[in-house]
Every structure is written in C-alpha cells, then in structure tokens.
C-alpha cells in the first residue's frame, strides 16, 4: 500500500469503529422511539415502516397509569434537590478551595468516599429511619436522599471551577474594598456561573434518573417516573409500547439539557470530576 492508501484505509477503519460504537449506543434508543409510536400489535415486529400513532402517550397519562402525577413528583424532587444542593455545595466548595482547614484533605476524601458506598448497602437504614420519622413515600424524603447523593459530586465539581478562578482576581477585589461575601457575590459567582449551571444540570440528571431509592422508599404518593415504568408490567405481559412512550417522556428533558450543556460538558468533566 502506498502512504496515501494506508491513510485512506485507516480513515475507513476509524469511521467503521465510530459507526459500530454509535450502533451499539443508539439502537436501544431508536427501538424505544419506534415502539412508542407503534400500536400494541406492531410493537413485537421489527418494522421500520408503520402507521405511527400517538395513542400511547394518551394512555400513559390516563387511569390507571396516571403518569402525570409521577412526572410532577420527578420534576419537584429533581428541581428542589438542585435548588438546595447548588448554593450549599458552592459555599462548601469555596471554603475547600480558598481556606485551609485542619483535616481539609481528609474531609474531601471522606466526601468523595461516600460516593463509593453501594446504594443497596445503605438503603435499609434509610428505610428504617424514614419509616420512624414518617418520611416514607414523601417527596421531602426523596429530596433528602437525592441531596445526599448529589452533594459530594456537586462539591467536587464546583470546587474544580472555583480553583480555576485566579486568586489575584479575588485579592484585587478585597483590596478594592469588598468583604468576603461581596467577593463571592460580585466576583466568584459570575465567574463560576458556567460551572454552577453545568453542575446544576448534572445534579438534575442524577436526581431525575435516580431509581433504587425511589423504588424502596416510595409506593404510591411520591412515586417518580423511573419507578412508574414498572407499572407497565401487567398481567398481560410487558406493555412495550406504553413503556416506550413513558421512556421518551423521561428521556426528553435529558436530551434538552444535554444539548444545553454540550459546550461545558467536557470542561465540567475534566475540571471538576477528574482533577
């Protein structure tokens, strides 16, 4: 092979590998998209061409499935989690980034270590505690659990962004006449805004997709969308068309958010989580 042919060959291999990866990742999603618009009859056939119907989306919001209530629960739980988590995580991250405390590294490691504990291990104590104080099957309970899940992540990620703000800038603001809180409000927050937005969206995605805790800690009132999917396993077998329609409702906000933070995604991953 000449140099040019070799180059073309490797370019083809490159393209083929990307296609395979895309295929592996996208096929389930494409399948769900198709199934959501198919009738109960069509759903078991791998047809690419069929008469699309919107009736599945109607059914899932009706009795007995009432997906609307679950959608509401999911939205409230995820939103409130983010609204509480980000300000607290920002203050914590600022402190970790700018002040030296005794045992600072230890604290950071412990915060990170909580992420390594398998959820299944701590779910029982959560269940017992929540039962005793009456938080079982409540949105408040779910918000608390989600906060525990996203906070360590948010602190580490936001700390990465704040570390990236030059100390000079903050010191200049202090000499210019700002108190510490004014420095945070006037300098740090605006400069870290893209990072805070990214972290917020990441947290929202985590809370939105959370499954295990919601499964164990809710049963009727506070059920969220991912748990709602289980409803479609009926006596007549799995209702794949309904399941797919609900799946799309779960995924849609994720796609929108992913588009929004595309620009910061890599930055967020490398700045916050990895460093």
């Amino acid at each position: 092979m000449t140099g040019r042919q070799r180059k073309q060959f490797w370019r083809a291999v490159h393209a083929a590998l990307i296609l395979v990866a895309m295929f592996v990742m996208l096929v389930p999603i494409v399948w769900i998209f198709l199934a959501a618009f198919k009738t109960h009859v069509d759903v078991y056939q791998l047809k690419l061409f069929f008469t699309p119907t919107l009736e599945n989306f109607g059914i899932v919001f009706d009795d007995p499935y009432r997906l609307g209530q679950k959608l509401f629960n999911s939205t409230i739980v995820a939103l409130v989690t983010v609204v509480i988590a980000i300000p607290i995580a920002t203050l914590a991250a600022y402190s970790f980034s700018r002040f030296s405390m005794r045992g600072e590294t230890m604290m950071l490691v412990i915060i990170l270590a909580t992420q390594f504990v398998p959820a299944v291990v701590i779910i029982l104590p959560f269940f017992v505690m929540f039962r005793d104080i009456g938080l079982l099957d409540t949105r408040v309970g779910l918000i608390l659990v989600n906060l525990a899940i996203v906070m360590p992540f948010a602190i580490w990620m936001i700390k990465g962004f704040i570390d990236g703000i030059p100390m000079d800038t903050e010191e200049a603001a202090m000499v210019d006449g700002s108190s510490r809180l004014q420095v945070i409000r006037n300098i740090v927050l605006p400069m870290a805004a893209p990072g805070l937005l990214t972290s917020g969206i990441f947290c929202f995605i985590i809370a939105w997709n959370e499954f295990l805790f919601a499964l164990i800690l809710t049963n009727k009132e506070a059920v969220t969308l991912p748990i709602g999917l289980a409803l479609f396993k009926g006596e007549e077998g799995d209702l794949w068309n309904l399941l797919s329609a609900a799946g799309i409702i779960i995924m849609a906000p994720m796609f929108v958010l992913a588009l929004m933070i595309r620009k910061y995604f890599v930055q967020g991953m490398t700045m916050g989580a990895v460093r």
Partner: peptide
C-alpha cells in the same frame, strides 16, 4: 490600592 502581576482584572 494594589496592582497585581497578573493584573487581577474582573
């Protein structure tokens, strides 16, 4: 008032 090596601008 202070002028910094890296300017310290906002």
């Amino acid at each position: 008032a202070m002028v910094f090596q890296n300017y310290g601008l906002y």
